[in-house]
Every structure is written in C-alpha cells, then in structure tokens.
Simulated assay, not measured.
Amino acid sequence: MAARIDLTLDCADATLLAEFWKTALGYVDEPPPAPFKTREEWLAQFDLPEDDSGDDAAWLCDPEGRGPRLSILTVPEPKTAKNRLHIDIRVPGEGTPDERWARIRTESERLVRAGGTIQEEFVGHHIVMADPEGNEFCVAAGSP
C-alpha cells in the first residue's frame, strides 16, 4: 500500500492562510479525529504549553477525500527563503492551448482577488503565484 501525504505550511497568521487555501483548493475545515467532538478537545490530550492553542493552527481537507490534508501552523520565525516544495494548482479542462491558457489566467485572477499575488507568468504554460504570506505556488493546466 502506498503512503499518503499531508502538507504543512508554517505561517504567521493561520486564519488568513486557511481562508486563502480553502478558496484556492475548495477545501473545508477538517473535523477533529474521532472520538473527539472539537479540535480543542483533541489538542488537550497533548499537554501543550500554555501559549500554544488551537487558534494558532488550521486543518483543512478535500471534501471529496482525494487531495492531501493541509495543516497550517503558526510559528514564531518569519519566512526567509524560497519554498523547497510548492503546491501546483491544476486547472481542469480540455481544449486548445489558448483555451487552457485562458482558464489558467482566469484562475490566477480569482486567486489574486482572494489575496494571492502573481510573481511570474510563463505564457501558455503556467503562472507562479504567492499566497498572502509569500508561499510560492503555480497555477497550470491539469487533466479534466
């Protein structure tokens, strides 16, 4: 059996990034693991330091269960360099190269309205973007 992966983003503002990535990926807040009824109840079992709370993190999941889970954790240190691993958002649909590029442009414009920024365009292929805290990702064509 193949291993599954989760992705974790360190950040300064988990709430801000969670809202951006829910918009970008169509993800939802992940419910706490069974048998816990709330995230706070789940976190209480770990005996975390007093200054560490569930407000400092967000857990997101693909509502269809296909994509990896995304944990967004507040950390004290700022981002200092380019990501060594980044997310590619694949825009579905078939068509001509111009039609695929138009969908990529439309998606990148939607993500700019959600708080992202365009870093660089590779016309006809993909757009490099950054989320509200500067984490790089790409928007590219995907399979339908």
Rank of each mutant, 00 (worst) to 15 (best):
D10G: 13
D13I: 00
A14G: 04
L16I: 04
A18P: 00
A18C: 02
A18M: 01
E19S: 09
E19D: 09
E19T: 11
W21V: 01
A24L: 03
V28T: 07
P31Y: 06
P32Q: 03
A34M: 12
F36N: 08
K37F: 07
R39M: 14
W42F: 15
A44E: 12
F46L: 08
D47C: 08
P49K: 08
D51S: 10
D52V: 15
D55E: 15
D56S: 13
D56N: 13
A57D: 01
G65C: 00
R66S: 09
P68C: 00
R69F: 03
R69H: 03
S71P: 00
I72E: 00
I72D: 00
L73A: 05
T74I: 04
T74L: 03
T74K: 09
P78I: 00
K79Q: 03
T80R: 03
K82E: 10
N83S: 07
I87F: 03
I89H: 02
I89Y: 00
I89G: 01
E94S: 14
G95T: 07
R100P: 09
A102T: 07
I104K: 05
R110I: 14
L111D: 11
L111W: 08
V112T: 13
V112G: 12
R113V: 13
G115M: 14
T117L: 13
F122E: 14
V123M: 10
V123I: 14
H126E: 13
I127E: 04
P132D: 08
P132Y: 07
E133G: 07
